[in-house]
Every structure is written in C-alpha cells, then in structure tokens.
C-alpha cells in the first residue's frame, strides 16, 4: 500500500537567474566552439569575423551568466569556496570551467595563440557538459534526473550558439558555413528535445513535463524555435537561387537567428521553471 505523504511541488530555489546562467553559458560556449569551426578553410567565414564584438561575445555571455547567479545565491561573497569540491561536484567544475574560459577567451582575442585557443575550447566544452550534469544530478527533481539532460544541454548550447553565429550572416560572411552549421545544430537539438519529452513513462516525469508538451509550449519550442528556422535554412541551402550562390537576406538571417535563440532559451526556461517539480514522498507499507 502506498501513502502519498508529500505531493510533488514546484521547486522555487532556482529561478530566472539560474535559467539565465544556463542559457548564456550554453550559448556563449556553443558560439565560441562553432565560431572556430566556421573559420576552417571552406567554412565560409572571412577575416571580417574577428571584430571586437565577436571576439569577446562568448566570454561576455558566460561572464554575464555567472553574474546572474550572484543575484540568486544567498552568500555570493563566498564564491571563492566554489572551487573546493571539483572532485565530485559538477557545480564546482562548472565554476572552474567558467573561470578558465573567460580569461582564456579574452586573452586569446588579445594575443591569439594555440595554447589559449586549446584552453578556451576545452573549458567551453567543460562548461557545456557540466551545466547539463548539474541539472542531471538533482535527484529531487524527476524531470531533471534523466540521463538525456546532459546531452540536451550540450545540443541546446550548440543550437543557441549557432543562432548567435547566424545573426551577422549577410554582412560579415561570404559563404554558407553558418547556415549549414545552424541547420545541423537545430535539427539535432530538435531530435534530442523530442526524445527528452518522451524519455520516460514514469508518472512523476510525465506529470512534470506536461507543461512542456502543451500546444503553446510546443509551438514555441518546436515550431518557432526549431521547425521554422530549419525550413527557412533548408530553403536557403537547397532551394531556388542556390546555383547563383545567393545568400540569406540579412533580415531573414537575423530573424532566423532570433527564432533559434528563442527556441533554445525557452527549452532551458521550460526545464528549470515549468518542469522543475520535486518528486512526491511516498510511504510504502
């Protein structure tokens, strides 16, 4: 016989500041990693992709994410202690990755060299992975404590990063690199998102993610955030005008970027705020 002692309830410990950190951190790291991919020969970027704004965007976003957390933490002045448990805590690892990433990315922009690039790349990867694992290790929340969460945070980070990458297309690029990358990231992220929504048949998971499966949420996360940009990008890449090398019009590229970023942001906001329900406590006699 099961007696439900405490019903599932919404978590209120992590709010918008935590969501902002997950969005900005993932987007910053994803953008940083993707911006290098597009710089390889044939990737479509020109030397124009090195102005101040883009060299510093990733570390600024990640830094802002961490700054948001100081609003939420009870004792932010004790932040120096956050490195004490790197061996076990993913939050310590995230802080360490961020603390390496921000200066490494800024220094690499100032003095480009391979060591700083490697440091920035490794810490960006670490940051994305650790953010996913932070959420995954929250045992009290059944919608977070599923193994697909780390993968979802990585794919979502890349998708939002690709959105940022796509934004300047049309005036900073000469090729289709960003559009191809954005297309791949959006499709992969959509697949992972749909897998997450149907990950478990467990009642607490189904109940917790119910808000994410509502039509209005699906329109935002799936329709506007993924399908719409994917279709526009698909048309630009394989549709009429491809032979002439025509690129996405500036305004269209910017709008597609906004929809992708909106999709990625709404995913993380949905997971943390709408689906963040504590599991109920049950006594089994």
């Amino acid at each position: 016989m099961k007696i439900e002692l405490i019903q599932p309830s919404k978590q209120k410990v992590w709010g918008w500041p935590a969501v902002a950190n997950f969005i900005l951190g993932g987007a910053g790291a994803g953008f940083y990693l993707l911006s290098f991919v597009t710089r390889i020969p044939g990737g479509g970027m020109t030397a124009m992709f090195d102005p101040v704004l883009f060299g510093l965007l990733a570390p600024v976003l990640v830094g802002l994410g961490f700054l948001c957390l100081t609003i939420e933490a009870g004792r932010p002045s004790r932040g120096r202690h956050l490195f004490r448990h790197v061996r076990h805590s993913w939050m310590s690892r995230e802080t360490l990755a961020g603390a390496i990433f921000v200066p490494a990315a800024v220094l690499h922009w100032l003095f480009p060299n391979t060591v700083l690039w490697l440091l920035g790349t490794a810490s960006a990867v670490g940051l994305m992975i650790s953010q996913g694992y932070i959420v995954y290790r929250a045992r009290a929340v059944p919608t977070w404590n599923v193994p697909i969460i780390p993968l979802l945070f990585v794919s979502s980070g890349f998708a939002t990063g690709a959105g940022l990458l796509l934004a300047p297309m049309g005036w900073l690029t000469t090729g289709r690199g960003p559009a191809v990358i954005a297309m791949i990231c959006v499709v992969v992220n959509l697949i992972v998102w749909l897998l997450y929504l149907h990950w478990s048949h467990d009642a607490s998971f189904r109940e917790g993610t119910k808000a994410l499966r509502r039509p209005i949420a699906l329109i935002l996360t799936v329709g506007i955030g993924h399908l719409l940009p994917a279709l526009v990008l698909l048309r630009a890449l394989v549709g009429p005008g491809v032979e002439t090398g025509a690129e996405l019009p500036h305004i269209v590229a910017a709008l597609v970027a906004v929809t992708i970023i909106t999709g990625g942001a709404s995913q993380k906001a949905g997971i943390i705020l709408a689906a963040g329900h504590y599991r109920g406590i049950v006594l089994r006699r």
Partner: peptide, 10 residues
C-alpha cells in the same frame, strides 16, 4: 555555504 540551492534540489 554559498546558498546556491544545489543541495536543496538534490
């Protein structure tokens, strides 16, 4: 303790 709330959700 920094009051990050991670243990609360864990």
């Amino acid at each position: 303790c920094v009051g990050c709330g991670y243990c609360v959700v864990a």
